[in-house]
Structure formats: structure tokens, C-alpha cells
Design a protein around this nucleic acid. Sequence first.
RNA 1: CGGGGAGUAGCGCAGCUUGGUAGCGCGCCUGCUUCGGGAGCAGGAGGUCGCAGGUUCAAAUCCUGUCUCUCCGACCA
Length: 476
Amino acid sequence: MGKLLKEITPKSQDYSQWYTDVIKKADMVDYAPVKGFMVMKPYSYRMWEFIQAALDQKFRETGHQNAYFPLLIPEHLLIKEAEHVEGFSAEVAWVTMGGNEVLAERLAVRPTSETVVGAMYSQWIQSYRDLPVLINQWANVLRWEKSTRPFLRTTEFLWQEGHTVHRTAAEAEAETRQQLETYHEMMESLLAIPVVAGAKSAGERFAGAIETYTLEALMGDGKALQSATSHFLGQNFAKAFDIQYLDEDGTLKFGWTTSWGSSTRLIGALIMVHGDDKGLRIPPRVAPIQIVIVPIGRGNDREPITRYAKTLIGKLTASFRVKLDDRDEFTPGYKFNDWEMRGVPLRIEIGPRDLAQQQVMVARRDTGEKIAVGEESLRDVLAQLLDQVQDTLLQQARQYQYENTFAVENYHEMAHHNFRGFFMGDWCGQETCADQLKQETSVTIRCLPFDTELAGTGCIVCGRSGQHRALFARAY
RNA sequence: CGGGGAGUAGCGCAGCUUGGUAGCGCGCCUGCUUCGGGAGCAGGAGGUCGCAGGUUCAAAUCCUGUCUCUCCGACCA
């Protein structure tokens, strides 16, 4: 325990440093040779694969197909939608050379793919019979960010971006909401992260969107993290890229498009929502290793224990992701701490006493609780415990969010909470109020949550009558 | 992009003020003993001091430039 503190800075002492310590000590990332880039090591990449698998399945179930669009986008395409290019111009990386030749037109490394997708869709779509187009791609994108943090904001990141075209506004709008719901469900059931769903205010919308929906999660330091977004693009991109179809009535009409995305940033959210001073706590459903087995004993004890551990592995691998830590060079105590740092949900200890009693000790990462389990019921108990850990992490995160969500009548009240947490308040709808708030407190409007009502106490900034109930917070 | 801090062995650091044979802890390798919450002893390997210039008989140390990490702000998934 004493040595542990040397390795991971306590959250309460320095949250940023804690985060950096955890991702390094849990063997999730390494820094790359180019500034702002990171290597996702196998342990974190595996988590991404679980997220991918869950989303991909859901996308398919809702009628979407995967495709892949090019990494490079010619400048003339990128600049077609005026608002869009303005929103992204400051963070686009350009390719200007091909081999030894200077290119006639420079090529943008995609910051997102609406433009190149739009250019292709305009060629693919002729008739209302071609609609809807429901395509998703798994890709990397590049945004030249000024300050970067592993997972939360890196220059290159992995994500999925869905791009759809619909015949009617209502259908596109429904698609936008449906995809947000897909993310919502995945975050709670897989990552055990509660979120607030809502619409972005005009000032916070995606560049070129009519409406942006978002999921906002509360991190352990009281800051909000935008975790997934879904955009209703209206006909903005259809007009810019000439995505038209001949409708049943014989007239040419513009399609209605959407786009929606979620990224490896989700892993950053997972770390900050569930981690504690001992390190990571990974929800079992995304844990690369769900159960680690630590054999205890030396000399004459060792051989039968190892043999037993191996038969146990054989029995459990069909149902769980299990690992036997039979490293010779570390003591059990070291291994306990090591796997706790890496966030493995359950640990099985097998020592001479257990062998004699035909039982094992099972320790939970989330609560620290340790129980003896008889061999015959082991598989069922483990399955139950994994569910319980998954559930407990979600409940704890919900509790934390609940305890750190405050209704305010004017923005000065936020100071009582050090501007940390979710703040619910009325907003008059004027951007000037949002700007003033941000200027003075760094707090921004995270979203206008669905299914909320005005408190009637007036705009928290100017006091005029409110137009929207809004979620305010400082954000990553 | 602005303001702080930091780059010396795999990791964490000292040495720099006042230039003169590169050190400590952990880790690593070998051997023996150890194992229910970060084991002990003994021996050993490992460094062009971030990079590039400059000053000097001599640079980890002084000067200039540059790159990277980190924290805090402004900009963004």
C-alpha cells in the first residue's frame, strides 16, 4: 500500500496527474514520437474492440452497413459547405507533396468525412428508391489540436462515423435520435457510465448541423465529457454536395442527411468515471481480463496448486476471460496490487488452505470484498459476481452524478461548488449570456436535456424569463 | 497558441549554483532462500546526460537554438 502511493498520485491531490499515472501504470498507452499522438497498447485497444463490437452489432440491427472512405480529401471538396469548413479550418492537416512532386491541389487528412461522403452520395443517389442510405465507417481521423491528452484529445483518434441520407426531414430526425439512443444504451450497459442526453445549444453545435444531440457524462473531478454526438444536418450538406433524388411525384428533391460518431475518448471516460486511487476499475463487460487467478504457495505446495489452477482455467475459459498469473518472480502481494492497478474486476486466490478445503478465495475489485467459494458453485458465483461488479460500478457512478448535480437559480451559486459538477438552470436562450458565463467562469452549456421543464426562476445569467432548461458544467 | 515545470541507465531522481574520470533507489541478469497484500542476501550488466550549434585545454554543468513531455489558460470529439 505504501509503495502503491508512490506509483499513482491520489485523485484528491492532483486529478490530472492521477489520470496520467493510471493510463501509464495500467499499461494502456505510450506516447508516440510525434507530439499529440499516442500508442494504444493491447490492454486499452481490447477495450476499444469491445466497444466496437457492441456498437457494430447494434448498427447492423438497425439496418446500417459498414463501408470505408478515403483518408485524404481534396481541398475543393472540404470547402464546399461554408460553416463546416470554417468550423474545422483551424485543425486540418494538409498533404502537399506526393513523393518528390508538389501536388496541384493539396489534400486534407480527414478531420471527419461528411464532405467526401457527401461527394460520393451525390453520385450514388438518383431516386427515392435509393433511400435511405445507411452507412457507417470505422476509421481514424486527424485534428490538429493545440493541447492533447491521451484518449481525451489526441491529434489522431479512432472512431466510427455514421452517414445517412433520408427522403424526409422527419425520417432523418428520427435516425439522429435513434443513434443517440444506441450510444446511450451502450454507455450504460457496457461502460456503466450514466449520461445526460440532450440537444446542443446553437453555439455548441457541430459545424454545419441544424441540430446536434449529445451525451454528457460527469467525470470524477466534476467536469463534463461529451461522449457521443448525433447530428441532424438538414439539407445543408445535400445542397452543398448536390445530393438529390427524383421523388415519386417526379420532382427533384434534396435529401436529408445525418451523421453520428463516438470515439476512443470513451475509454478516457471509463477511466475517469470508475478509477480510484488504486488505479483502474474496468466494468466486466469491457474488461480484457475479467478474472485473474493468483496461485499462492511455494515448495511442496506449489506444484499441486499450479496444477489445480490450470484445470480451473480450463473449466472457466469457456465462460469468462480468465488469466493465470503464474509468474515466478513476483509474490502474491505484488500481483494483487498489480492487477488491481489494471482494474481486473475479479481475482481468484488459490493457496494451500483453499486446496485442502476445496475452495478458492474470490476478491472484488470494486468493493475490495473477499469471499470463499466452493469449487462446485464457482462458475455460477463468478458469473453473478461479474454482473454485480458491472451493476455496482453503474450504481456508484449514478450516485456520484446525482450527488454532484445541482439546481441553480443564478450562476453565482455555482461558486459554492467550486464550479464542479452538473448545474441545472434556466437559460434565456441568448448566446451573449452563454458567452458571459464562459468568460467569467469557464462554465459552458453542455446540453438542453430532453424531458425537462423550466424552473421558472429566470435565466441564471441575466434573470430574464427562461427559454430552456439547460445543463451547465465545465467541460473537457 | 500564451504562462509555469521537466528532459541524466527500463522507471523515479541526485549531480549543474562554483566546468575537471556519471551517481543513488527501484527494476533487470545470475545464484540461494522466500510466497495468504508490493520478499531477503550475495554477485553482475546497463548511460554518445533529449537534439543541434557555440564558449573553453576541458561541458551533464555556461550560452544560443530546437524538439518532446507535463500542469494551467484560450480553441476543439
